[in-house]
Design a protein around this nucleic acid. Sequence first.
DNA 1: GGCGACTTTGAGTGATCATTCTAATTTGAT
DNA 2: ATCAAATTAGAATGATCACTCAAAGTCGCC
Lengths: 180, 180
Amino acid sequence: MRYRVGLETRTRILEATRDLVAAQGLEKTTIKAICEKAGILVGSFYNLFESKEEAILTVVADAIRAVGPEDEEATLHELVDAYVDFVEKSETTARVYLMVAVSGGLTDEGIRARMLRHHERRIELFGRALRTARPDMPEEEVRQRVEGLLAALNGMAFHRLLDPSFDFRSYARALLQIGA
Amino acid sequence: MRYRVGLETRTRILEATRDLVAAQGLEKTTIKAICEKAGILVGSFYNLFESKEEAILTVVADAIRAVGPEDEEATLHELVDAYVDFVEKSETTARVYLMVAVSGGLTDEGIRARMLRHHERRIELFGRALRTARPDMPEEEVRQRVEGLLAALNGMAFHRLLDPSFDFRSYARALLQIGA
DNA sequence: GGCGACTTTGAGTGATCATTCTAATTTGAT
DNA sequence: ATCAAATTAGAATGATCACTCAAAGTCGCC
């Protein structure tokens, strides 16, 4: 991939993969379908990616990266709002992210490992914000509350994708009354 | 399926299917794997089920049925507690239920339809309980709050399955401070 | 505009998928 | 014990899967 056309093809492949994964899930997404959607033939795919797994892992990694700005100084409220923004503004990417977050990448070890690392980072990020707001709270309780908050947020985000009329932002903010 | 042995085989097939779906997801579960786990050969499978889809739909329908006693008189607190019991006591079935609840049965139309119907019933059930507790609440707000509560519960349930040390019951109860 | 590196083509490979079929065996009511 | 019906065995089928490869075409530096 040293020429301009190669990079364009790569982009089209990743977009096609993202859309298909969001619509049908990880397992049902085939090379054939990706290539058709990207307007190429299989040979071109394998010129740019080692395997189907590599393309999917790239899409998943991009989705994880798109979730958060990782601002270490952000308040809980800002973090929750940023997550709501992500889900509402990048529905397709959010769908990929949630599918993996929730199934944990049941079979693929690469995806699973990446998502676990991401989850730990999120707990740290939200934990730091909660500790700042509530310096008196015991460390163990901080972690449990953050885990509960993140889990509830993910559940609501999924519902938001199924039902766009759901007022995700309000309920996400309401969760903070428990979480903090 | 008129003989005793046939019914036993059927049960073993459904258990194998349930376990495999819980462990690997809907799409990665193959007839071959089901038959190996059930200790039979493919011919026996097709003597009892029309297709792989029928076996999986049966498992999913059983999981949906296992979720709730559908007690029309139950309070919100009782409903939430019953759901926590379900998740903690029937982990494998709960995993199947959540995978379908969350992915909505992305491809299979039979599963998708069944889960949508179930979701509507749950909203009615929880809505009735919330209206009883808060007769003054506007109808539209009741539905939105119930949807938010159910979504958050599902998210937390998923997290509970990934991390058994998570205190699902406490956080589920805490949600009621928002939901009601 | 020549040339080596990159990209595309598209038929081909072997593995695995769900499903079918026939013959052999087992069941249980009589 | 007999026998029709149910169950099981297991090879075979055709579709589809991820992936390979050699030849033809394109790109962009010189």
